[in-house]
């Protein structure tokens, strides 16, 4: 055992939720720990700490990752999106609105991770079928809802997003 339990800290620069961020961390610290404990972004949740529950899901350069499996030093020069950065300045993202409307939130602990997984899916395929939605959300555990209302919320958000897109397209 190391008699001095402190590791030398490393400086990391990245972009989090659109803002440039600079922090010091130990090499052993996960992205999840730094987000939650150092940066105060507690929207990403810690469930299993080993990649099995998806409560810590965030987007890293647009790719869905479990923040508990990423070391904080790995995000150097990268972009991170957490639930805190999802909503536009005014109002909510359609996924957030539909989670509310469809009653897809019960305790709400899985919700941030679910919403970010769903966002990753819709960025990849704006028109997913039910089975594709279920495949993309299979890494996010929810013990409360039985998933049904979550799947409906993602479907409804997909529909609204594509309507918005269509509206943008017809604009001259």
């Amino acid at each position: 055992m190391n008699s001095k339990p402190y590791a030398k800290k490393v400086q990391v620069q990245a972009q989090i939720n659109g803002e440039p961020v600079e922090f010091l961390c130990e090499p052993r610290q996960t992205l999840l720990e730094v987000l939650r404990e150092s940066l105060g972004l507690t929207g990403a949740k810690e469930g299993c700490s080993n990649g099995n529950c998806g409560a810590c899901s965030v987007l890293l350069d647009g790719v869905l990752v479990n923040a508990c499996l990423v070391l904080a030093v790995e995000i150097q020069d990268k972009r991170v999106l957490t639930i805190e950065g999802l909503a536009p300045r005014e109002g909510l993202h359609p996924l957030q609105e539909e989670f509310l409307r469809q009653g897809a939130v019960q305790c709400g602990f899985c919700t941030p991770g679910m919403i970010l997984s769903a966002k990753a899916l819709l960025d990849h395929n704006p028109h997913p079928g039910e089975s594709e939605i279920r495949r993309w959300l299979a890494g996010n555990l929810c013990r409360c809802t039985g998933y049904e209302k979550i799947v409906r919320a993602v479907q409804a958000a997909a529909e609204r997003l594509s309507q918005q897109e269509a509206a943008v397209e017809v604009k001259p």
Binding site: T42, I83, A87, L92, F99, V105
Partner: peptide
């Protein structure tokens, strides 16, 4: 719509481990 819903979809709801 649930009154606590907004905080839960935006990540602002404070769960036990979020207390600082």
């Amino acid at each position: 719509i649930r009154q606590d819903g907004l905080d839960k979809v935006t990540g602002r709801a404070v769960f036990g481990a979020d207390v600082r």
